[in-house]
Simulated assay, not measured.
Amino acid sequence: MWAGHPLDAAVAQAFAAEGSETGYLRLSDVTMSRFDFVRPAPAPGHGPVAWYSATTSLAPAHIDHAGLHLVRRNDAPFLHGHGIWRDETGHVHAGHLVGPDCRLARDVVVRG
């Protein structure tokens, strides 16, 4: 996957190069120049099953471990992922990554 590209686009391009529109990846030890994520949050009332915090942006960040599902939503690629990552001070975070705003710091090779 290529540095500087939105993470969701890089994953979709990598799978397309292998002839697939969907798939699963595990990331380990990946440095990000920008990393956006949300955490589960309490529901304000009845309604949707899941509620999320406001988006947190880290620049830079380091993914320790993450699992990414590439699916199709509204006839377009959609990346859904969970994991554990660290900010530049080493503080550990966890949650749901927000793929369109995440950027790889350098090219990485992954298996999916």
Rank of each mutant, 00 (worst) to 15 (best):
W2V: 12
A3P: 01
G4P: 00
H5V: 15
H5N: 12
P6E: 10
L7E: 01
L7A: 05
A9D: 13
A10T: 00
A12T: 06
Q13F: 15
F15R: 11
A16E: 14
E18Q: 14
E18P: 06
G19C: 06
G23F: 03
G23D: 02
G23M: 04
L27Q: 00
M32N: 03
S33A: 11
P40A: 12
P40W: 07
P44E: 09
P44R: 07
P44W: 05
P44A: 12
P44S: 10
P44D: 07
G45Y: 11
G45D: 13
G47S: 05
P48E: 10
P48I: 11
Y52Q: 12
T56A: 03
S57P: 09
A59P: 01
P60W: 06
A61I: 05
D64K: 08
H65C: 13
H69G: 06
L70K: 00
V71W: 12
A76T: 12
A76R: 09
A76Q: 12
P77H: 07
L79V: 09
L79A: 03
H80A: 13
H82V: 13
G83F: 06
W85D: 01
E88W: 11
E88P: 08
G90K: 07
H91R: 14
H91M: 13
V92P: 04
G95N: 03
G95A: 08
H96C: 13
H96M: 10
V98G: 06
C102H: 02
L104I: 05
L104Q: 00
L104Y: 01
R106D: 03
R106G: 11
D107N: 11
V108F: 04
V110K: 01
